[in-house]
């Protein structure tokens, strides 16, 4: 057998240089926007109240950023495949109620119910793909289902987390506040899973151009189910983290997470359609929104205005991104 290599490799490693000079700068700016907004918020806090920048202060301010970040990651999976989950907030409430009651008193039942919740999420993905119904319709319906179940399980605020969960969430790492460690772990894990693995590329591609993925022989049903199931898993994590921190549950505890999670994904550089998302950005976005509340407190803005002020931050960041994108398009 003659194993002659076909042809010669004329060009071994051609050095490729990006053409126009301004575009990389613009793209860097676009990518840096989430970190930049987080830095601005932190600088604002440090300037108004330097003592808040201590180990304890950061711990207190960022604590609730963890469940928010987890819910934001859940939302991000759904947004990756061009859908929207309006039910994530009440799902977190539902999980919270299960965690504060059954998971403590009857661990097997608790675990089974939580797994059931993930299975319902997977089913939602299948229904949305097979029946071609808008995800907004399906998840809007589920919003009320989770809400109702949460009230059934825990009509009055109360309950208690399992001790192991409470201990985990109040774990103290030396030197670095635990929420920061947790945020980095979440961001890196999801980044590797979704952005670096080979199947992650297929999952994101199914949001960017479903036809192309289908034509290459991949199952779009499977990608949809996987993404929704992952959203369910991170919804469960979010509920666990939330109850571990607050030590008791309430049927409305996660209500704000629906809009907060969508805002976090977008603030972190994600787009509503086209599969363009960033897990690291999403975590940063969630932390930014959490810290924005503290910043507004330090600025002595009454809580009545805080939601509006958070909206203002969102508008400013998105406007900046739109401007960068426009310039990018014009120079191309």
């Amino acid at each position: 057998m003659n194993g002659t290599p076909r042809g010669q490799d004329s060009s071994a490693n051609v050095v490729r240089i990006a053409k126009s000079g301004s575009q990389p700068t613009l793209r860097f700016l676009r990518a840096a926007l989430p970190s930049l907004s987080l830095a601005l918020v932190i600088l604002g806090i440090a300037w108004l109240n330097p003592r808040a920048m201590s180990y304890l202060g950061l711990n207190l301010m960022l604590n609730l950023g963890i469940p928010t970040a987890l819910a934001t990651i859940a939302q991000m999976f759904v947004i990756t495949v061009n859908d929207l989950d309006l039910s994530i907030g009440t799902f977190v409430s539902f999980v919270g109620c299960v965690v504060a009651t059954w998971l403590r008193d009857a661990p097997f039942l608790g675990v089974a119910v939580l797994l059931g919740g993930v299975a319902v999420y997977a089913l939602m993905g299948a229904v949305i793909y097979l029946r071609n119904v808008p995800s907004i319709v399906v998840t809007l319906g589920m919003l009320f289902v989770w809400q109702g179940l949460a009230i059934l399980i825990l009509p009055k605020p109360g309950g208690k987390p399992p001790t192991w969960l409470h201990d985990l969430m109040n774990f103290h790492v030396p030197y670095v506040p635990f929420p920061i460690v947790a945020a980095i772990v979440i961001a890196v894990l999801v980044h590797v899973g979704l952005m670096r693995t080979s199947y992650g590329a297929i999952l994101r591609g199914s949001g960017g151009n479903p036809n192309a993925i289908g034509r290459a022989g991949w199952s779009l049903l499977k990608t949809k189910i996987v993404m929704f199931a992952l959203a369910g898993v991170f919804g469960v994590f979010s509920g666990l983290a939330l109850i571990g921190l607050t030590t008791s549950a309430d049927a409305n505890i996660g209500k704000g997470y629906t809009l907060l999670s969508i805002a976090g994904v977008i603030l972190g550089g994600g787009e509503f359609v086209g599969g363009r998302v960033s897990p690291i950005g999403a975590v940063i976005g969630a932390l930014t929104l959490t810290l924005a509340g503290s910043l507004l407190n330090f600025m002595r803005i009454s809580p009545d205005w805080q939601v509006g002020a958070q909206g203002g931050i969102l508008i400013i960041v998105l406007a900046a991104r739109a401007m960068i994108n426009q310039t990018d398009r014009r120079t191309r």
Binding site: S198, A201, I202, R204, G205, G207, G208, N209, N211, A212, I213, G214, R215, A216, G217, W218, G274, G275, R276
Partner: peptide, 30 residues
């Protein structure tokens, strides 16, 4: 489409079938 791939039949469609949100390398992987 899956069988076509396995049998070595490839197609460059008129409307492009690359995923715009993936990198060049990732699109090759698809």
């Amino acid at each position: 489409a899956l069988l076509a791939q396995k049998l070595g039949i490839r197609c460059v469609f008129q409307e492009l079938s690359l995923c715009p949100n993936l990198t060049v390398a990732e699109n090759a992987r698809v």
